[in-house]
């Protein structure tokens, strides 16, 4: 439990003259449920883009599982065990639901095994998501919650050590939020470390063991959920008072 899985050290990311992240540090422990909050534009997505490799950080280092990720392409990081979801679901729209899952299975976790094995794996992941009845549907006919679950399912198909969930619950109803939370908790109990980015406070407070808060590219708080929620700096960032 105490072993560090992801170590973010002084990560800085600039876009021209604009500093999106300024010396952000955080350590995520193995098996931890880690919350990342902050107002719009505070750098949450930039930080996970740096972790997943879609952006390369200008300064600082990101150590995952004991190895520096510097210079690695996103697909190489995926193979090392980092999976992410996107804020706005990005399904492979010309494929069916099950084919969507077959991509990560074929290229990462079940690479080299038979097609039959891959479809069985994909089906078992859909069962976890209780979406098995949608397996052969086109993605264009899916509802918002189904798209969110597909996004999660595809990330899980990588069999990651670390799952970064970028607003997996945005736009969902109360019951649907609970449904997704339940899935995430179960995955965590099975040993997956999870970073959750969320605007729905109820969800992130209930889920996280520990939370950090970003504001204007800087870390302003780091601690237990019940401490964070009372932190004056966090209140100021969100409410502007």
């Amino acid at each position: 439990m105490s072993e560090v899985l992801l170590n973010i050290e002084n990560v800085t990311k600039t876009f021209g003259g604009f500093t999106a992240l300024s010396k952000v540090s955080a350590a995520v422990k193995k098996g931890e449920r880690f919350g990342l909050i902050g107002p719009n534009g505070s750098g949450k997505t930039t930080l996970i883009n740096c972790i997943s490799g879609m952006l390369q950080n200008n300064g600082g280092s990101i150590i995952f599982d004991g190895k520096d990720l510097k210079g690695l392409q996103p697909h190489q990081r995926t193979k090392r065990g980092i999976a992410r979801t996107f804020q706005i679901p990005r399904p492979f729209h010309s494929m069916t639901v099950i084919q969507n899952l077959q991509i990560p299975l074929e290229f990462v976790s079940s690479s080299g095994t038979s097609q039959k094995n891959i479809s069985e794996e994909a089906m078992s992941i859909l069962e976890v998501m209780s979406m098995e009845d949608k397996a052969h549907h086109e993605t264009s006919g899916l509802t918002q919650i189904e798209l969110r679950k597909l996004e999660l399912a595809r990330a899980i198909a990588v069999k990651p050590k670390l799952l970064v969930s970028d607003e997996a619950m945005a736009g969902l109803t109360g019951n649907e939020v609970d449904e997704v939370l339940e899935i995430l908790v179960k995955l965590n109990e099975d040993g997956m470390t999870i970073i959750m980015i969320e605007h729905i406070m109820r969800a992130v407070m209930q889920f996280s063991h520990r939370i950090i808060c970003l504001d204007a590219g800087q870390k302003i708080a780091d601690g237990l959920p019940e401490v964070i929620v009372k932190d004056p700096a966090v209140e100021r960032a969100y409410l502007g008072v």
């Binding site: 879609m54 697909h75 193979k79 996107f86 990005r90 492979f92 595809r154 198909a157």
Partner: peptide, 14 residues
């Protein structure tokens, strides 16, 4: 073709 960034993040060496 469907989504290059998602493909890359799903382990496809684009």
């Amino acid at each position: 073709k469907d989504n290059e960034e998602a493909a890359e993040c799903m382990g496809v060496p684009t």
